[in-house]
């Protein structure tokens, strides 16, 4: 029989392993939350809720499976649960958006990052999340599909529409007024693309059940 110390060395504490993986992922989780929510404090609340739910549900995580996808899925589920309860997260308030955006203005190959951040918050959540998962977190289509709980084709479709809408919002109509709603939007130039995309917005996002032990 192996000594206890050797056993500990070869079989590290699974709780400690889980904790270490969680810590390593926190920066990306906070960034994903910031992209999903319009308010910095809400984003950090979401990230903290996700931490604790994941910890409570750690027994349901299969070691060796995609930890990042599992964590992002929990965050996404929690986001949509909160979204239903809190209309502040869905109401477009450009003045608030201007105040809470924390990314310093910077140029990225001719595109102002601040403009991208503002436009991103005008997209439907389903397009925004795909852009964040693939564009910001560099996930594969497959991993993003696992997080969202949909087919890869759906991910590709939402990504394409999201990029189109984002580009249209950044370019903007001729007078610089962004289409705030399908009723208010201008239908001219790039606005036509944006209008078509906004018409495609799904009303009710798919929801995946949280692990039972997470609640």
């Amino acid at each position: 029989m192996a000594p206890a110390s050797a056993s500990t060395a070869t079989n590290p504490d699974p709780d400690k392993l889980f904790r270490d993986q969680l810590v390593a992922l926190l920066p990306s989780l906070r960034a994903f939350a910031r992209g999903l929510c319009r308010h910095r404090d809400m984003a950090d609340d979401l990230a903290q809720d996700t931490m604790m739910r994941a910890w409570a549900a750690r027994a349901s995580y299969t070691e060796g499976s995609n930890f990042r996808a599992w964590m992002f899925m929990i965050m996404r589920n929690q986001f949509y649960t909160t979204l239903r309860k809190n209309s502040r997260m869905t109401t477009l308030d450009p003045e608030v958006a201007e105040r809470v955006l924390v990314v310093a203005p910077a140029q990225q190959d001719g595109i102002n990052v601040d403009d991208v951040a503002k436009a991103l918050q005008r997209l439907p959540a389903q397009q925004r999340e795909v852009l964040l998962l693939i564009g910001a977190n560099e996930m594969s289509y497959e991993e993003a599909a696992e997080v969202i709980g949909c087919a890869m084709g759906t991910v590709k479709s939402r990504l394409a529409r999201g990029r189109l809408a984002l580009a249209a919002l950044i370019d903007g109509p001729a007078d610089g007024v962004l289409p705030a709603s399908p009723q208010q939007r201008r239908v001219d130039g790039h606005g036509q693309n944006a209008a078509r995309v906004f018409d495609d917005v799904l009303r009710e996002p798919p929801h995946r059940t949280m692990p039972a032990s997470a609640g």
Partner: peptide
């Protein structure tokens, strides 16, 4: 997704700003 796409690069920059 990223190659030559300034929007994707901007999204990554936003992510990195928060992650750091």
């Amino acid at each position: 997704v990223i190659g030559g796409d300034p929007i994707a690069a901007a999204l990554k920059q936003m992510h990195d700003a928060v992650a750091s």
